[in-house]
Write a protein that binds this DNA or RNA. Structure first.
Lengths: 344, 344
DNA sequence: CTGAAAGCGCTTACAG
DNA sequence: CTGAAAGCGCTTACAG
């Protein structure tokens, strides 16, 4: 609240005084308006340069009515998946001369509210929401801001916004097919009960693949974790306690797969010899686990860039597609193999 | 550059009209000034609320001369270590009502320049620089901005700024001591030739530990990677090619250790039976490798919070300590063991 | 307690 | 080509 008197930066007026012209002329010269004598324009620019002039964004935005900023909301910056989100967005934004405000909702409703409010106060030109719940709960507040908004992997379908999302159904089907192709018949789905739509969609893809292969759907083989390593052991214990345990597990995400991997190791079970494991996301670390994790790659960097470009298009007045679905890619590594491959 | 006419947000004037008072009074009421009749203040606030009024940060900052924003510069957002940087900063900033601009320098000098310039235009109140080179190369430009700056893990010593850094010498000494205590005598140091000061300091710590234990320093046991997984295999090959290869390796960071781990596995060497490995950073994934990685934890989240708090202190006019050194913590996991432990 | 006035640093019609 | 003027949305002395 309180703060020391910042040294006043040199303004357009100051350099007008120095250059012996009106501040209007300075403004024009600095903006390279053709309406000013090239000689004086040059002189003005030199003076500005020498005096270390740096235009005031806030002042400028007051009249232009845009700030050249976008806001980005993520649930957790520490989440490796979201770290990439921010990277792709920042890159694309910067290429267009936009700066990005980053905020972390922490999945806390109160915090989410404040974040949106604060972005609104800063008069961001547009918003990218990569925090599923924010999109879900605050859509009304968001659309009241009357600025372009793009949702990344939004978890609740809504018609009136722009979004980019991973093609969950296809991805899950592909993952399951891969396991089926390897010869697995008892394939578990370890979902995420907080995954909302993505969980539903991935589950649907799993069932589709089963149906296509004429494999029976067994409810017992479906358990729901919480999308974090913490919930995985319990879920896995349920599966292993079954009379006929699964020979392969399709995990909601890599974090879950990671925890399962570790849990199985503790139990003395081998991956993929005893149990095959497939993840989702292709986090950086998926390549470094032992065995390296087979997974469905979610091209986050591209998705983010796509989201940013979509927003930038909107900001530049171009029509943009409403929704983009990006395909996931099966990344074959060593955590999947034919069932019982150690014995055969 | 071009952009559609944003719908004009409701201003203080508009609600003044609605409330039949002057806009000065509205301003006061909204800011809870005691200089306004409680009844009318209440009425004004209600009207503001109902009309969806949201104060304009840019307009406000023009007169208050601060924007309640800070800029954060990192080299790479995708780098897991830096993802945490941002998280801690954003959290602390938000608690004090500040928003954060995030930019990624990509270790590109031109980009770095633009980032600094853009933050300056946005009139950020303060800056946190977690991109070592920016601190090194642009210190002059930065200090010309005349705003508080805090450097995180800055790689070049400079007197006139505030900084928080990891205690590299101590950390490296501790790591090396751990290996010595396990009985290792031939301990390699796999450094990072782009690590500037941190590399130098960690190397110094390594030598100190050796000296303390009266172990000879062998230049052959010191190689320099590039701080990324890419450079590790070559560096490791050199070490393994030695007449008497090391039985333990102190790696510059976890990423390097990770790559070494993998490389050794390819070569059929076991960790820690054949070679002990200790990393640095304690990235999230260090816990999930096989074997889990023994490493020196760099408490990034706390370091970031410390940096943010230091900056906030500065912004609030409080004196702040100039430099904070945070101790690293030895995290014992399974990648280190006595030499030749498979045979004994 | 309230309003008129000045001003923050800029841009941009409007007259010359 | 140039300057005086108005205005962007706010805050805050200054007079009542």
């Amino acid at each position: 609240m309180c703060s020391p008197p910042l040294p006043r930066a040199v303004s357009i007026k100051e350099i007008a005084r120095l250059a012996q012209v009106s501040h209007s002329t300075v403004s024009r010269a600095l903006r390279h308006s053709p309406l000013v004598n090239p000689k004086t324009a040059e002189r003005i620019r030199r003076i500005a340069e020498e005096s270390g002039y740096c235009p005031s964004g806030p002042a400028r935005s007051l009249v232009t009515r845009h700030t050249e900023t976008i806001g980005v909301i993520v649930t957790s910056i520490a989440d490796p998946l979201h770290a990439e989100v921010v990277g792709g967005i920042e890159e694309a934004a910067n290429e267009h001369g936009f700066s990005v405000f980053l905020a972390n909702s922490n999945a806390d409703p109160e915090r989410e509210f404040h974040v949106v409010r604060s972005f609104q106060q800063h008069r961001v030109d547009g918003l990218i929401v990569a925090a599923p719940r924010v999109g879900a709960l605050h859509m009304a507040a968001l659309s009241r801001m009357r600025i372009p908004i793009v949702l990344v992997n939004n978890q609740h379908p809504s018609e009136f916004v722009h979004s980019v999302a991973i093609a969950n159904v296809d991805a899950a089907r592909q993952a399951t097919r891969h396991l089926i192709a390897l010869g697995h018949r008892r394939i578990a789905s370890l979902g995420n009960r907080f995954g909302y739509q993505s969980d539903t969609e991935r589950f649907a893809g799993y069932r589709q693949a089963l149906a296509e292969a004429d494999l029976p759907f067994e409810p017992d083989l479906v358990v729901h974790g919480d999308g974090t390593p913490g919930g995985a052991p319990a879920a896995m214990a349920r599966l292993l306690g079954l009379a006929a345990p699964p020979t392969a597990v399709f995990c909601y995400n890599d974090m879950t797969a990671l925890a399962v991997l570790r849990h199985l190791r503790c139990l003395g079970l081998r991956v993929p010899e005893d149990v095959s494991l497939i993840g989702f996301d292709d986090l950086f670390l998926a390549e470094y686990t032992d065995p390296p994790l087979t997974t469905m790659r979610q091209p986050m960097w591209q998705m983010d860039r796509a989201a940013a470009r979509m927003l930038l298009d909107l900001l530049e007045g171009n029509a943009a597609v409403e929704n983009v679905q990006m395909p996931a890619e099966l990344i074959l590594r060593q955590s999947t193999a034919p069932p019982g491959s150690s014995h055969g």
